[in-house]
């Protein structure tokens, strides 16, 4: 049995060690320690199997509830099927026309960013941070600071990797910041017009909105403006959709224009993402 005084001293030492550990790991690190890497791999593989099982259960429940709906849809689809042959002819004609027009305009096939597709195997279990663990890591070519996108827009960036996992920090996290440009569609203009440059900051998961800060008191920002990465921060390539301005406010000293931005990505429903492994390659001009 440990004497009370010695136990108290040990507890105090433990608390102090944890505080020191916290301050040492408060900044982003290039590499994980071997022990951390092993623990993350093990934890992620356990969560991966359970999340796969949970996904199957969810799908089974969906299948059962969708059975009745499927019968009704079946009747509608049968009817539509009868109309399919003439539509197929129409589609072929349209395809051919599209190809001709593309050639005429000199359009090339869109060249997407080189990406790696990954599945989300775990989400932050708390109500403070906003991150997810992916089922692919350094072995798949994923590195720290690579942008993470979904078909809707920018989701976040990779903050650390182990051999088979990667942790991504979502835009919603308070540690997240993105340099952006604010664009507006103007009637008559060929392309959206750049109105200002700013920074989008995360505010935590519960609000599910982002904070836009523009350091120019005369910036003309309106609800409905599109917020797109500017590429100025060096981490994210330009041209990725971040969201749309919802509400504009000016600060008490009239120095900074702030706005609420509705993210393009629905963070509640992310199950798969694309990690941009070569942001320099860039989107098509």
């Amino acid at each position: 049995m440990i004497p009370v005084q010695r136990r108290r001293l040990l507890s105090l030492l433990l608390v102090l060690s944890i505080v020191v550990l916290m301050s040492l790991t408060a900044r982003e690190r290039e590499r994980l320690t071997w022990l951390e890497e092993q623990a993350v791999e093990l934890l992620s593989s356990v969560q991966r199997s359970f999340s796969l099982a949970a996904g199957r259960v969810e799908r089974a429940v969906d299948d059962l509830s969708g059975l009745a709906r499927a019968q009704a849809e079946n009747a509608v689809l049968r009817h539509r099927l009868e109309l399919l042959p003439p539509l197929e002819h129409q589609l072929q004609d349209l395809r051919a026309e599209n190809n001709r027009l593309r050639q005429l305009l000199g359009f090339s096939e869109t060249r997407p960013f080189p990406t790696v597709a990954a599945r989300v195997v775990a989400r932050n279990p708390d109500n403070w941070f906003s991150y997810a663990v992916l089922d692919k890591g350094a072995r798949a070519g994923i590195e720290r600071n690579m942008p993470v996108v979904t078909p809707e827009g920018l989701a976040g960036r990779v903050v650390r990797t182990s051999a088979n996992t990667a942790t991504i920090l979502f835009l919603l996290d308070r540690d997240s910041g993105v340099a952006v440009g604010i664009y507006r569609s103007v009637p008559g203009a060929e392309a959206p017009v750049l109105k200002a440059f700013g920074v989008v900051l995360g505010q935590g998961e519960h609000g599910a909105v982002l904070r836009l800060r523009v350091f120019a008191h005369d910036a003309q920002i309106e609800p409905g403006d599109r917020v797109v990465t500017s590429g100025l921060g060096g981490v994210f390539p330009p041209g990725l959709l971040v969201g749309e301005v919802r509400q504009v406010e000016t600060d008490a000293y009239d120095l900074v224009v702030e706005a609420e931005v509705m993210p393009a990505v629905d963070f509640d429903r992310i199950t798969e993402v694309l990690v941009v492994i070569d942001p320099v390659a860039g989107p098509p001009p």
Partner: peptide, 11 residues
């Protein structure tokens, strides 16, 4: 274990 998932602010 919860701390290890994020890997920052360990503890």
């Amino acid at each position: 274990l919860q701390d290890l998932l994020l890997g920052r602010y360990l503890g």
